[in-house]
Design a protein around this nucleic acid. Structure first.
Length: 560
RNA sequence: UGGGGUAUAGCCAAGUUGGUAAGGCAGCGGGUUUUGAUCCCGUCAUUCCCAGGUUCGAGUCCUGGUACCCCAGCCA
Protein backbone atom coordinates (compact mmCIF):
# COMPACT_ATOMS: atom_id res chain seq x y z
CA UNK A 1 0.00 0.00 0.00
CA UNK A 2 1.38 3.37 -0.94
CA UNK A 3 2.44 5.67 1.84
CA UNK A 4 -0.09 8.45 1.79
CA UNK A 5 1.47 11.79 2.54
CA UNK A 6 -1.03 13.38 4.82
CA UNK A 7 -3.12 15.76 2.73
CA UNK A 8 -3.38 19.35 3.78
CA UNK A 9 -6.35 20.41 5.84
CA UNK A 10 -7.38 23.50 7.72
CA UNK A 11 -5.83 22.28 10.97
CA UNK A 12 -2.45 21.67 9.40
CA UNK A 13 -2.67 25.11 7.88
CA UNK A 14 -3.24 26.60 11.30
CA UNK A 15 -0.25 24.73 12.61
CA UNK A 16 1.89 25.82 9.69
CA UNK A 17 0.93 29.39 10.40
CA UNK A 18 1.59 29.04 14.13
CA UNK A 19 4.98 27.57 13.40
CA UNK A 20 5.79 30.36 10.97
CA UNK A 21 4.87 32.87 13.63
CA UNK A 22 7.02 31.11 16.16
CA UNK A 23 4.18 30.25 18.51
CA UNK A 24 4.65 27.69 21.28
CA UNK A 25 8.41 27.82 20.72
CA UNK A 26 7.90 25.67 17.68
CA UNK A 27 6.35 22.83 19.65
CA UNK A 28 3.40 20.84 18.37
CA UNK A 29 1.71 18.75 21.04
CA UNK A 30 -1.66 17.10 20.54
CA UNK A 31 -3.64 14.65 22.57
CA UNK A 32 -6.20 11.92 22.09
CA UNK A 33 -8.59 12.20 25.05
CA UNK A 34 -11.08 9.31 25.19
CA UNK A 35 -13.44 8.82 28.08
CA UNK A 36 -13.13 5.19 29.22
CA UNK A 37 -16.84 4.54 28.98
CA UNK A 38 -16.98 2.40 25.85
CA UNK A 39 -14.94 0.87 23.08
CA UNK A 40 -13.26 2.91 20.39
CA UNK A 41 -14.93 3.00 17.00
CA UNK A 42 -14.10 4.13 13.50
CA UNK A 43 -14.99 7.70 14.41
CA UNK A 44 -12.31 7.68 17.07
CA UNK A 45 -9.89 6.33 14.49
CA UNK A 46 -10.31 9.56 12.56
CA UNK A 47 -9.38 11.55 15.65
CA UNK A 48 -6.52 9.22 16.49
CA UNK A 49 -5.08 9.43 12.99
CA UNK A 50 -5.46 13.19 13.02
CA UNK A 51 -3.84 13.76 16.40
CA UNK A 52 -1.08 11.19 16.14
CA UNK A 53 -0.59 11.91 12.47
CA UNK A 54 -0.01 15.58 13.13
CA UNK A 55 2.40 14.86 15.95
CA UNK A 56 4.27 12.46 13.69
CA UNK A 57 4.61 14.74 10.72
CA UNK A 58 5.56 17.83 12.72
CA UNK A 59 8.05 16.04 14.90
CA UNK A 60 5.81 16.72 17.86
CA UNK A 61 4.17 14.57 20.45
CA UNK A 62 0.72 13.15 21.00
CA UNK A 63 -0.48 12.20 24.46
CA UNK A 64 -3.00 9.53 25.30
CA UNK A 65 -5.08 10.98 28.10
CA UNK A 66 -8.14 9.38 29.57
CA UNK A 67 -10.78 11.96 30.27
CA UNK A 68 -11.95 10.20 33.38
CA UNK A 69 -13.94 12.73 35.31
CA UNK A 70 -17.17 10.78 35.61
CA UNK A 71 -16.75 7.65 37.76
CA UNK A 72 -20.35 6.65 37.16
CA UNK A 73 -19.80 5.62 33.58
CA UNK A 74 -16.21 4.57 33.42
CA UNK A 75 -14.56 1.18 33.77
CA UNK A 76 -11.13 -0.40 33.67
CA UNK A 77 -12.16 -2.75 30.89
CA UNK A 78 -12.50 0.24 28.59
CA UNK A 79 -9.10 1.58 29.50
CA UNK A 80 -7.49 -1.68 28.44
CA UNK A 81 -9.37 -1.94 25.19
CA UNK A 82 -8.67 1.68 24.27
CA UNK A 83 -4.93 1.33 24.82
CA UNK A 84 -4.93 -1.87 22.82
CA UNK A 85 -6.82 -0.30 19.93
CA UNK A 86 -4.54 2.74 19.71
CA UNK A 87 -1.50 0.49 19.68
CA UNK A 88 -3.10 -1.82 17.17
CA UNK A 89 -3.59 1.11 14.84
CA UNK A 90 0.15 1.52 15.06
CA UNK A 91 0.48 4.63 17.18
CA UNK A 92 2.59 5.18 20.25
CA UNK A 93 1.74 7.96 22.65
CA UNK A 94 4.45 10.17 24.01
CA UNK A 95 5.29 9.51 27.63
CA UNK A 96 3.08 7.55 29.99
CA UNK A 97 -0.61 6.92 29.63
CA UNK A 98 -2.15 9.94 31.29
CA UNK A 99 -5.38 10.42 33.15
CA UNK A 100 -7.23 13.61 33.85
CA UNK A 101 -7.57 12.09 37.30
CA UNK A 102 -3.79 12.41 37.66
CA UNK A 103 -4.48 16.13 37.95
CA UNK A 104 -7.26 16.07 40.50
CA UNK A 105 -5.03 17.64 43.16
CA UNK A 106 -3.79 20.39 40.86
CA UNK A 107 -7.26 20.93 39.50
CA UNK A 108 -8.55 21.37 43.02
CA UNK A 109 -5.88 23.99 43.69
CA UNK A 110 -6.72 25.80 40.47
CA UNK A 111 -10.36 25.86 41.47
CA UNK A 112 -9.36 27.38 44.80
CA UNK A 113 -7.31 29.98 42.93
CA UNK A 114 -10.37 30.83 40.86
CA UNK A 115 -12.41 31.28 44.02
CA UNK A 116 -9.74 33.58 45.40
CA UNK A 117 -9.97 35.70 42.28
CA UNK A 118 -13.70 35.95 42.77
CA UNK A 119 -14.24 33.92 39.60
CA UNK A 120 -15.92 30.90 41.12
CA UNK A 121 -18.48 30.31 43.81
CA UNK A 122 -20.25 27.51 45.58
CA UNK A 123 -23.91 27.29 44.71
CA UNK A 124 -26.12 25.43 47.13
CA UNK A 125 -29.25 25.63 45.03
CA UNK A 126 -30.84 22.37 43.92
CA UNK A 127 -30.08 21.06 40.44
CA UNK A 128 -33.62 21.96 39.45
CA UNK A 129 -33.21 25.52 40.66
CA UNK A 130 -29.95 25.90 38.82
CA UNK A 131 -31.48 24.63 35.61
CA UNK A 132 -34.42 26.95 35.99
CA UNK A 133 -32.25 29.96 36.70
CA UNK A 134 -30.09 29.26 33.69
CA UNK A 135 -32.89 30.36 31.38
CA UNK A 136 -33.07 29.06 27.84
CA UNK A 137 -32.40 30.10 24.24
CA UNK A 138 -34.70 33.06 24.43
CA UNK A 139 -34.62 33.93 28.11
CA UNK A 140 -31.45 35.17 29.75
CA UNK A 141 -30.39 33.48 32.96
CA UNK A 142 -30.73 35.01 36.41
CA UNK A 143 -28.01 35.26 39.00
CA UNK A 144 -27.92 32.69 41.71
CA UNK A 145 -28.65 34.08 45.16
CA UNK A 146 -25.27 32.61 46.15
CA UNK A 147 -23.34 34.31 43.39
CA UNK A 148 -21.94 36.99 45.66
CA UNK A 149 -20.78 34.93 48.57
CA UNK A 150 -17.51 36.09 50.01
CA UNK A 151 -14.27 34.46 48.98
CA UNK A 152 -13.82 33.14 52.51
CA UNK A 153 -17.26 31.58 52.56
CA UNK A 154 -16.72 30.01 49.14
CA UNK A 155 -13.36 28.65 50.22
CA UNK A 156 -14.90 27.10 53.30
CA UNK A 157 -17.85 25.69 51.40
CA UNK A 158 -15.67 24.22 48.65
CA UNK A 159 -13.53 22.57 51.32
CA UNK A 160 -16.71 21.20 52.84
CA UNK A 161 -17.69 19.78 49.47
CA UNK A 162 -14.33 18.07 49.26
CA UNK A 163 -14.59 16.89 52.85
CA UNK A 164 -17.85 15.09 52.28
CA UNK A 165 -19.96 17.50 54.30
CA UNK A 166 -22.68 17.70 51.66
CA UNK A 167 -25.07 15.26 50.08
CA UNK A 168 -24.79 14.58 46.38
CA UNK A 169 -26.45 17.39 44.50
CA UNK A 170 -26.47 19.71 47.48
CA UNK A 171 -23.69 21.95 46.25
CA UNK A 172 -21.61 22.65 43.17
CA UNK A 173 -18.76 24.96 42.34
CA UNK A 174 -19.63 27.29 39.48
CA UNK A 175 -17.61 29.67 37.39
CA UNK A 176 -18.69 33.29 37.81
CA UNK A 177 -19.03 34.47 34.24
CA UNK A 178 -22.23 35.88 32.79
CA UNK A 179 -25.76 34.66 33.33
CA UNK A 180 -26.90 36.91 30.49
CA UNK A 181 -24.60 35.36 27.89
CA UNK A 182 -26.33 34.17 24.72
CA UNK A 183 -23.99 31.19 24.97
CA UNK A 184 -25.51 28.92 27.59
CA UNK A 185 -22.11 27.46 28.37
CA UNK A 186 -21.04 30.81 29.76
CA UNK A 187 -23.98 31.12 32.17
CA UNK A 188 -21.94 30.28 35.24
CA UNK A 189 -21.14 26.69 34.24
CA UNK A 190 -20.74 24.03 36.90
CA UNK A 191 -17.07 23.24 37.54
CA UNK A 192 -17.32 20.65 40.29
CA UNK A 193 -20.08 18.35 41.45
CA UNK A 194 -20.40 15.86 44.26
CA UNK A 195 -20.40 12.16 43.37
CA UNK A 196 -19.96 9.67 46.15
CA UNK A 197 -18.68 6.98 43.93
CA UNK A 198 -15.33 5.23 43.92
CA UNK A 199 -13.18 6.15 40.95
CA UNK A 200 -11.31 3.52 38.94
CA UNK A 201 -8.05 5.44 39.36
CA UNK A 202 -8.35 7.43 42.56
CA UNK A 203 -10.49 5.06 44.57
CA UNK A 204 -12.47 6.85 47.26
CA UNK A 205 -10.08 9.73 47.68
CA UNK A 206 -12.57 12.18 46.20
CA UNK A 207 -16.25 12.81 46.55
CA UNK A 208 -16.10 15.84 44.27
CA UNK A 209 -15.28 15.47 40.61
CA UNK A 210 -14.42 18.21 38.12
CA UNK A 211 -16.56 18.64 35.02
CA UNK A 212 -15.26 18.15 31.50
CA UNK A 213 -15.39 21.87 30.75
CA UNK A 214 -13.12 22.62 33.68
CA UNK A 215 -10.86 19.63 33.37
CA UNK A 216 -10.14 19.58 29.69
CA UNK A 217 -8.58 22.98 29.03
CA UNK A 218 -6.61 22.83 32.25
CA UNK A 219 -5.34 19.32 31.59
CA UNK A 220 -4.29 20.54 28.18
CA UNK A 221 -2.47 23.47 29.73
CA UNK A 222 -0.86 21.29 32.36
CA UNK A 223 0.47 18.95 29.70
CA UNK A 224 1.64 21.69 27.40
CA UNK A 225 -0.78 20.72 24.65
CA UNK A 226 -0.57 23.27 21.86
CA UNK A 227 -3.43 22.23 19.61
CA UNK A 228 -6.44 20.66 21.25
CA UNK A 229 -8.52 19.06 18.52
CA UNK A 230 -12.10 18.06 19.15
CA UNK A 231 -15.36 17.65 17.32
CA UNK A 232 -17.82 20.30 16.27
CA UNK A 233 -20.26 19.92 19.13
CA UNK A 234 -17.67 21.46 21.44
CA UNK A 235 -17.51 24.63 19.44
CA UNK A 236 -19.83 26.44 21.82
CA UNK A 237 -17.54 25.43 24.65
CA UNK A 238 -14.52 27.17 23.20
CA UNK A 239 -15.23 30.52 24.88
CA UNK A 240 -15.30 28.69 28.19
CA UNK A 241 -12.11 26.82 27.29
CA UNK A 242 -10.45 30.14 26.57
CA UNK A 243 -11.88 31.75 29.69
CA UNK A 244 -10.34 29.07 31.86
CA UNK A 245 -6.99 29.13 30.12
CA UNK A 246 -6.86 32.88 30.52
CA UNK A 247 -8.00 33.07 34.11
CA UNK A 248 -5.84 30.36 35.48
CA UNK A 249 -2.19 30.91 36.18
CA UNK A 250 -0.49 28.35 33.97
CA UNK A 251 2.35 29.03 31.55
CA UNK A 252 0.95 27.29 28.49
CA UNK A 253 -2.01 28.47 26.49
CA UNK A 254 -3.47 25.65 24.45
CA UNK A 255 -5.96 26.42 21.72
CA UNK A 256 -8.98 24.38 20.78
CA UNK A 257 -9.92 23.65 17.16
CA UNK A 258 -12.96 21.72 16.06
CA UNK A 259 -13.49 19.41 13.11
CA UNK A 260 -16.46 17.40 11.85
CA UNK A 261 -16.86 13.98 13.34
CA UNK A 262 -16.95 10.95 11.09
CA UNK A 263 -20.31 9.42 10.28
CA UNK A 264 -20.77 6.21 8.33
CA UNK A 265 -24.01 5.19 6.76
CA UNK A 266 -25.76 1.91 7.55
CA UNK A 267 -24.24 1.80 11.00
CA UNK A 268 -24.16 3.69 14.28
CA UNK A 269 -21.21 5.34 15.94
CA UNK A 270 -22.53 6.55 19.20
CA UNK A 271 -21.29 4.93 22.35
CA UNK A 272 -24.78 4.92 23.77
CA UNK A 273 -26.20 2.98 20.84
CA UNK A 274 -23.23 0.67 20.54
CA UNK A 275 -23.47 -0.14 24.22
CA UNK A 276 -27.18 -0.87 23.86
CA UNK A 277 -26.53 -3.27 20.97
CA UNK A 278 -23.96 -5.05 23.10
CA UNK A 279 -25.87 -5.03 26.37
CA UNK A 280 -29.10 -6.26 24.82
CA UNK A 281 -27.33 -8.99 22.92
CA UNK A 282 -28.17 -7.85 19.41
CA UNK A 283 -24.54 -8.51 18.58
CA UNK A 284 -21.82 -10.80 19.88
CA UNK A 285 -20.02 -8.32 22.13
CA UNK A 286 -18.08 -5.15 21.47
CA UNK A 287 -15.94 -6.96 18.92
CA UNK A 288 -18.81 -8.31 16.85
CA UNK A 289 -17.55 -8.14 13.26
CA UNK A 290 -20.63 -6.18 12.21
CA UNK A 291 -19.85 -3.33 14.57
CA UNK A 292 -17.80 -0.29 13.53
CA UNK A 293 -15.78 -0.60 16.72
CA UNK A 294 -12.07 -0.96 16.16
CA UNK A 295 -12.17 -4.33 17.88
CA UNK A 296 -15.09 -5.35 15.65
CA UNK A 297 -13.27 -4.24 12.54
CA UNK A 298 -10.18 -6.09 13.70
CA UNK A 299 -12.18 -9.27 14.18
CA UNK A 300 -13.81 -8.68 10.84
CA UNK A 301 -10.38 -8.71 9.21
CA UNK A 302 -9.63 -5.04 8.75
CA UNK A 303 -5.98 -4.07 8.94
CA UNK A 304 -4.58 -1.05 10.76
CA UNK A 305 -3.17 0.15 7.45
CA UNK A 306 -6.57 0.01 5.80
CA UNK A 307 -8.14 2.05 8.56
CA UNK A 308 -5.36 4.60 8.61
CA UNK A 309 -5.47 4.95 4.87
CA UNK A 310 -9.22 5.37 5.02
CA UNK A 311 -8.92 8.12 7.62
CA UNK A 312 -6.20 9.91 5.74
CA UNK A 313 -8.22 9.92 2.57
CA UNK A 314 -11.27 11.31 4.29
CA UNK A 315 -9.84 14.70 4.80
CA UNK A 316 -10.63 16.93 7.73
CA UNK A 317 -13.19 19.66 7.44
CA UNK A 318 -15.91 21.40 9.36
CA UNK A 319 -18.79 20.25 7.19
CA UNK A 320 -21.13 17.59 8.54
CA UNK A 321 -20.78 14.52 6.40
CA UNK A 322 -21.76 10.92 6.10
CA UNK A 323 -19.27 8.64 4.45
CA UNK A 324 -20.37 5.67 2.38
CA UNK A 325 -19.61 2.33 3.93
CA UNK A 326 -18.30 1.34 0.49
CA UNK A 327 -15.34 3.66 0.93
CA UNK A 328 -14.29 1.88 4.11
CA UNK A 329 -14.68 -1.42 2.28
CA UNK A 330 -12.62 -0.16 -0.61
CA UNK A 331 -9.79 0.68 1.75
CA UNK A 332 -9.56 -2.82 3.16
CA UNK A 333 -9.90 -4.40 -0.28
CA UNK A 334 -7.03 -2.29 -1.47
CA UNK A 335 -4.79 -3.32 1.39
CA UNK A 336 -5.71 -6.99 1.36
CA UNK A 337 -5.48 -7.22 -2.39
CA UNK A 338 -1.84 -6.26 -2.12
CA UNK A 339 -0.99 -8.15 1.03
CA UNK A 340 -3.25 -11.10 1.70
CA UNK A 341 -2.07 -14.57 0.78
CA UNK A 342 -4.41 -16.39 -1.58
CA UNK A 343 -6.22 -19.61 -0.79
CA UNK A 344 -9.04 -21.74 -2.09
CA UNK A 345 -12.18 -22.23 -0.09
CA UNK A 346 -15.38 -23.75 -1.37
CA UNK A 347 -18.28 -22.16 0.41
CA UNK A 348 -21.05 -24.27 -1.03
CA UNK A 349 -19.57 -27.62 -1.97
CA UNK A 350 -20.68 -29.71 -4.93
CA UNK A 351 -18.76 -32.92 -5.56
CA UNK A 352 -16.89 -33.21 -8.82
CA UNK A 353 -15.56 -36.63 -9.84
CA UNK A 354 -12.80 -36.77 -12.43
CA UNK A 355 -13.59 -40.09 -14.05
CA UNK A 356 -10.33 -40.54 -15.90
CA UNK A 357 -8.25 -39.74 -12.82
CA UNK A 358 -6.94 -42.82 -10.97
CA UNK A 359 -8.54 -43.56 -7.60
CA UNK A 360 -5.40 -43.29 -5.52
CA UNK A 361 -3.56 -40.62 -7.44
CA UNK A 362 -2.72 -37.49 -5.52
CA UNK A 363 -0.90 -34.78 -7.40
CA UNK A 364 0.51 -31.80 -5.52
CA UNK A 365 0.15 -28.73 -7.67
CA UNK A 366 2.11 -25.53 -7.24
CA UNK A 367 0.24 -22.28 -6.90
CA UNK A 368 1.50 -18.82 -6.12
CA UNK A 369 0.68 -17.41 -2.72
CA UNK A 370 0.05 -14.15 -4.54
CA UNK A 371 -0.16 -14.04 -8.34
CA UNK A 372 1.14 -10.47 -8.54
CA UNK A 373 3.85 -10.87 -5.95
CA UNK A 374 6.35 -13.66 -6.48
CA UNK A 375 8.16 -12.74 -3.30
CA UNK A 376 5.32 -14.26 -1.34
CA UNK A 377 6.32 -17.68 -2.63
CA UNK A 378 4.25 -20.66 -3.58
CA UNK A 379 1.86 -23.04 -1.94
CA UNK A 380 1.00 -26.63 -2.82
CA UNK A 381 -2.41 -28.15 -3.17
CA UNK A 382 -3.32 -31.79 -3.66
CA UNK A 383 -5.51 -32.67 -6.60
CA UNK A 384 -7.43 -35.91 -6.21
CA UNK A 385 -10.06 -37.80 -8.11
CA UNK A 386 -12.81 -36.20 -6.13
CA UNK A 387 -12.85 -32.49 -5.48
CA UNK A 388 -15.37 -29.93 -4.39
CA UNK A 389 -16.36 -26.96 -6.45
CA UNK A 390 -18.91 -24.34 -5.58
CA UNK A 391 -22.51 -25.06 -6.55
CA UNK A 392 -22.58 -21.56 -8.02
CA UNK A 393 -19.87 -22.60 -10.43
CA UNK A 394 -21.89 -25.26 -12.20
CA UNK A 395 -24.97 -25.12 -14.38
CA UNK A 396 -26.58 -27.66 -16.61
CA UNK A 397 -26.95 -24.96 -19.19
CA UNK A 398 -26.15 -21.32 -19.48
CA UNK A 399 -25.59 -18.55 -21.97
CA UNK A 400 -22.10 -17.58 -23.06
CA UNK A 401 -21.79 -14.87 -20.42
CA UNK A 402 -21.52 -17.57 -17.79
CA UNK A 403 -17.81 -18.19 -17.43
CA UNK A 404 -17.99 -21.30 -15.29
CA UNK A 405 -18.65 -24.99 -15.68
CA UNK A 406 -21.57 -26.05 -17.84
CA UNK A 407 -22.56 -29.56 -18.74
CA UNK A 408 -20.65 -30.50 -21.89
CA UNK A 409 -18.32 -27.52 -21.65
CA UNK A 410 -14.85 -27.08 -20.29
CA UNK A 411 -13.36 -25.01 -17.58
CA UNK A 412 -9.97 -24.89 -15.89
CA UNK A 413 -9.50 -25.99 -12.34
CA UNK A 414 -7.35 -23.05 -11.33
CA UNK A 415 -3.66 -23.93 -11.17
CA UNK A 416 -4.62 -27.39 -12.41
CA UNK A 417 -6.06 -29.04 -15.47
CA UNK A 418 -8.83 -28.31 -17.87
CA UNK A 419 -11.87 -30.47 -17.27
CA UNK A 420 -15.04 -31.14 -19.17
CA UNK A 421 -18.37 -31.80 -17.46
CA UNK A 422 -19.77 -35.04 -18.83
CA UNK A 423 -22.67 -36.02 -16.65
CA UNK A 424 -24.54 -35.29 -13.46
CA UNK A 425 -25.86 -37.44 -10.64
CA UNK A 426 -29.04 -36.54 -8.82
CA UNK A 427 -30.45 -37.64 -5.54
CA UNK A 428 -33.99 -38.84 -4.92
CA UNK A 429 -35.24 -35.25 -4.82
CA UNK A 430 -33.73 -34.46 -8.17
CA UNK A 431 -31.04 -32.34 -6.61
CA UNK A 432 -27.67 -32.45 -8.32
CA UNK A 433 -25.27 -34.13 -5.91
CA UNK A 434 -22.36 -34.86 -8.18
CA UNK A 435 -20.83 -33.77 -11.44
CA UNK A 436 -18.87 -36.33 -13.43
CA UNK A 437 -16.14 -34.98 -15.62
CA UNK A 438 -12.97 -35.82 -17.52
CA UNK A 439 -9.69 -33.98 -17.45
CA UNK A 440 -7.18 -33.26 -20.17
CA UNK A 441 -3.71 -34.31 -18.94
CA UNK A 442 -2.02 -32.04 -21.45
CA UNK A 443 -3.34 -28.81 -20.02
CA UNK A 444 -1.26 -28.23 -16.91
CA UNK A 445 0.23 -24.80 -17.31
CA UNK A 446 -0.85 -24.53 -20.92
CA UNK A 447 -3.97 -24.09 -22.87
CA UNK A 448 -5.51 -26.97 -24.80
CA UNK A 449 -5.43 -27.16 -28.57
CA UNK A 450 -8.82 -26.37 -30.03
CA UNK A 451 -10.39 -29.70 -30.88
CA UNK A 452 -13.49 -30.99 -32.56
CA UNK A 453 -16.36 -32.10 -30.42
CA UNK A 454 -15.13 -30.39 -27.33
CA UNK A 455 -16.85 -27.60 -25.55
CA UNK A 456 -15.20 -24.28 -25.10
CA UNK A 457 -13.06 -23.19 -22.19
CA UNK A 458 -15.42 -20.88 -20.39
CA UNK A 459 -13.27 -19.84 -17.52
CA UNK A 460 -11.40 -20.78 -14.41
CA UNK A 461 -12.87 -22.03 -11.17
CA UNK A 462 -11.43 -22.84 -7.77
CA UNK A 463 -11.65 -26.21 -6.09
CA UNK A 464 -10.54 -28.17 -3.05
CA UNK A 465 -9.62 -31.83 -2.78
CA UNK A 466 -12.47 -33.81 -1.25
CA UNK A 467 -10.05 -36.07 0.64
CA UNK A 468 -7.61 -33.45 1.80
CA UNK A 469 -9.74 -30.37 2.22
CA UNK A 470 -10.43 -29.06 5.70
CA UNK A 471 -14.00 -28.63 6.86
CA UNK A 472 -14.70 -25.17 8.13
CA UNK A 473 -17.37 -22.64 9.02
CA UNK A 474 -17.69 -19.38 7.18
CA UNK A 475 -19.58 -16.37 8.48
CA UNK A 476 -20.88 -13.96 5.91
CA UNK A 477 -21.69 -10.50 7.13
CA UNK A 478 -23.93 -7.86 5.74
CA UNK A 479 -24.58 -4.37 7.03
CA UNK A 480 -26.02 -4.36 10.54
CA UNK A 481 -28.78 -1.93 9.58
CA UNK A 482 -31.18 -1.84 6.68
CA UNK A 483 -31.40 1.91 6.46
CA UNK A 484 -28.68 4.38 5.59
CA UNK A 485 -29.38 6.40 8.71
CA UNK A 486 -30.47 3.92 11.39
CA UNK A 487 -30.96 6.67 13.92
CA UNK A 488 -33.69 8.23 11.85
CA UNK A 489 -36.84 6.51 13.05
CA UNK A 490 -40.56 7.02 12.97
CA UNK A 491 -42.50 8.01 16.05
CA UNK A 492 -42.37 5.33 18.69
CA UNK A 493 -39.64 3.34 16.97
CA UNK A 494 -36.03 2.90 17.92
CA UNK A 495 -32.90 2.44 15.86
CA UNK A 496 -33.07 -1.20 16.89
CA UNK A 497 -36.06 -1.57 14.59
CA UNK A 498 -33.73 -0.90 11.68
CA UNK A 499 -31.47 -3.85 12.39
CA UNK A 500 -30.95 -6.05 9.37
CA UNK A 501 -32.20 -9.51 10.35
CA UNK A 502 -29.88 -11.05 7.78
CA UNK A 503 -26.69 -9.31 8.79
CA UNK A 504 -25.09 -12.64 9.64
CA UNK A 505 -25.26 -15.80 7.58
CA UNK A 506 -23.38 -18.80 8.89
CA UNK A 507 -22.22 -21.39 6.37
CA UNK A 508 -21.40 -24.84 7.71
CA UNK A 509 -19.67 -27.59 5.76
CA UNK A 510 -17.38 -25.32 3.79
CA UNK A 511 -14.05 -26.74 2.68
CA UNK A 512 -10.74 -24.93 2.66
CA UNK A 513 -7.40 -26.00 1.22
CA UNK A 514 -5.28 -28.04 3.65
CA UNK A 515 -2.46 -25.51 3.84
CA UNK A 516 -4.52 -23.38 6.18
CA UNK A 517 -4.67 -25.99 8.91
CA UNK A 518 -2.57 -23.97 11.34
CA UNK A 519 -3.80 -20.50 10.52
CA UNK A 520 -4.35 -18.58 13.74
CA UNK A 521 -6.97 -16.01 14.66
CA UNK A 522 -6.80 -12.78 12.71
CA UNK A 523 -4.78 -14.27 9.87
CA UNK A 524 -6.18 -12.90 6.67
CA UNK A 525 -6.58 -14.46 3.25
CA UNK A 526 -8.09 -13.83 -0.06
CA UNK A 527 -10.22 -16.83 -0.93
CA UNK A 528 -9.81 -16.61 -4.65
CA UNK A 529 -12.90 -15.57 -6.54
CA UNK A 530 -14.77 -15.18 -3.25
CA UNK A 531 -13.39 -12.32 -1.21
CA UNK A 532 -11.28 -11.56 1.81
CA UNK A 533 -11.58 -13.63 4.94
CA UNK A 534 -9.92 -13.89 8.28
CA UNK A 535 -9.73 -16.55 10.94
CA UNK A 536 -12.11 -15.93 13.80
CA UNK A 537 -11.14 -16.41 17.42
CA UNK A 538 -13.93 -18.99 17.67
CA UNK A 539 -11.78 -21.40 15.68
CA UNK A 540 -10.85 -24.58 17.50
CA UNK A 541 -8.31 -27.18 16.60
CA UNK A 542 -9.51 -29.06 13.57
CA UNK A 543 -12.37 -26.73 12.82
CA UNK A 544 -11.57 -23.32 11.48
CA UNK A 545 -14.04 -20.46 11.47
CA UNK A 546 -13.64 -17.69 8.94
CA UNK A 547 -15.21 -14.26 8.84
CA UNK A 548 -15.75 -12.66 5.49
CA UNK A 549 -14.19 -9.24 5.70
CA UNK A 550 -15.50 -8.07 2.36
CA UNK A 551 -16.25 -9.63 -0.99
CA UNK A 552 -14.28 -9.12 -4.16
CA UNK A 553 -15.58 -6.36 -6.33
CA UNK A 554 -18.04 -7.95 -8.72
CA UNK A 555 -18.80 -6.27 -11.96
CA UNK A 556 -20.26 -9.05 -14.05
CA UNK A 557 -23.80 -9.14 -15.35
CA UNK A 558 -25.91 -11.11 -12.91
CA UNK A 559 -28.31 -12.19 -15.64
CA UNK A 560 -25.66 -14.41 -17.17
C1' U B 1 -37.05 31.45 19.39
C1' G B 2 -31.13 33.55 21.15
C1' G B 3 -26.16 31.84 20.09
C1' G B 4 -22.61 28.98 17.29
C1' G B 5 -21.57 26.50 12.59
C1' U B 6 -21.85 24.39 7.46
C1' A B 7 -23.27 24.45 2.06
C1' U B 8 -18.16 22.65 -4.38
C1' A B 9 -20.22 15.77 -8.65
C1' G B 10 -23.79 9.90 -6.22
C1' C B 11 -20.27 10.07 -1.29
C1' C B 12 -16.00 12.66 0.84
C1' A B 13 -12.90 16.87 -0.40
C1' A B 14 -8.95 20.58 -2.43
C1' G B 15 -9.53 25.41 -3.84
C1' U B 16 -5.74 31.12 1.03
C1' U B 17 -3.54 38.75 -2.73
C1' G B 18 -10.50 37.39 -7.45
C1' G B 19 -7.44 34.82 -13.27
C1' U B 20 -11.04 30.52 -15.81
C1' A B 21 -13.03 23.88 -10.75
C1' A B 22 -7.17 18.98 -7.56
C1' G B 23 -7.49 14.08 -5.59
C1' G B 24 -10.01 9.60 -3.51
C1' C B 25 -14.38 6.32 -3.56
C1' A B 26 -18.47 5.10 -6.81
C1' G B 27 -19.98 5.13 -12.16
C1' C B 28 -19.11 4.58 -17.50
C1' G B 29 -16.06 2.89 -22.04
C1' G B 30 -11.78 0.04 -23.65
C1' G B 31 -7.18 -3.18 -23.02
C1' U B 32 -4.40 -7.15 -20.23
C1' U B 33 -5.55 -11.45 -17.20
C1' U B 34 -5.34 -19.24 -15.30
C1' U B 35 -9.41 -14.78 -9.64
C1' G B 36 -16.04 -12.01 -13.59
C1' A B 37 -10.52 -9.69 -8.92
C1' U B 38 -6.10 -6.92 -9.58
C1' C B 39 -3.59 -3.84 -13.16
C1' C B 40 -3.58 -0.28 -17.36
C1' C B 41 -5.82 3.56 -20.51
C1' G B 42 -9.71 6.89 -21.26
C1' U B 43 -14.17 9.33 -19.44
C1' C B 44 -16.89 11.63 -15.49
C1' A B 45 -18.93 19.76 -12.39
C1' U B 46 -19.50 25.46 -18.78
C1' U B 47 -20.13 25.25 -12.76
C1' C B 48 -19.51 25.79 -6.88
C1' C B 49 -27.17 26.30 -2.02
C1' C B 50 -30.37 30.46 -4.33
C1' A B 51 -31.00 35.69 -6.00
C1' G B 52 -28.97 40.23 -6.94
C1' G B 53 -24.46 43.35 -7.08
C1' U B 54 -19.01 44.92 -7.74
C1' U B 55 -15.30 43.59 -11.62
C1' C B 56 -12.34 42.91 -18.00
C1' G B 57 -12.88 38.49 -14.92
C1' A B 58 -16.26 35.75 -8.85
C1' G B 59 -16.40 29.09 -5.91
C1' U B 60 -13.41 33.12 -3.94
C1' C B 61 -15.52 40.17 -2.63
C1' C B 62 -20.53 42.78 -1.20
C1' U B 63 -25.99 42.52 -0.13
C1' G B 64 -30.26 39.71 0.74
C1' G B 65 -32.36 34.96 1.14
C1' U B 66 -32.75 29.36 1.74
C1' A B 67 -31.48 24.58 3.79
C1' C B 68 -29.16 21.59 7.26
C1' C B 69 -26.22 20.64 11.95
C1' C B 70 -24.92 21.80 17.29
C1' C B 71 -26.28 24.08 22.31
C1' A B 72 -31.19 24.79 27.42
C1' G B 73 -26.60 17.57 31.98
C1' C B 74 -24.42 18.52 38.57
C1' C B 75 -22.47 13.75 30.66
C1' A B 76 -18.14 13.96 27.60
Amino acid sequence: MSEAKAPSNFIRQIIDRDLAEGKNNGRVVTRFPPEPNGYLHIGHAKSICLNFGIAESYGGACHLRFDDTNPEKEEDEYIHSIKKDVEWLGFQWAGPVRFASDYFDQLYDLAVALIRKGLAYVDTQSPEQIAEMRGNFTTPGRNSPHRDRSVEENLALFADMRDNKFDEGAAVLRARIDMQSPNLNMRDPVLYRIRKKAHHQTGDKWVIYPMYDFTHPLSDALEGITHSLCTLEFEDHRPLYDWLVENVDLPDEPRQYEFARLNLNFTVTSKRRLKLLVDEGHVDGWDDPRLPTLSGLRRRGYTPAAIRHFCENLGVSRADSVIDMSILEASVRDDLNHNAPRAFCVLNPLKLVIENWPEDREEWLDAPVHPQNEDMGTRRMPLTREVYIDREDFREEANKKYKRLVLGDRVRLRYGYVIQAEDIVRDADGEIVEVRCSYDPDTLGKNPEPAEGQGKMRGVIHWVSADRGLPCEVRLYDRLFQTANPSKVAEGESFLDNINPESLRVLQGCVVEPGLRDAGPESRFQFEREGYFCVDRDSVDGRLVFNRTVGLRESWPREA
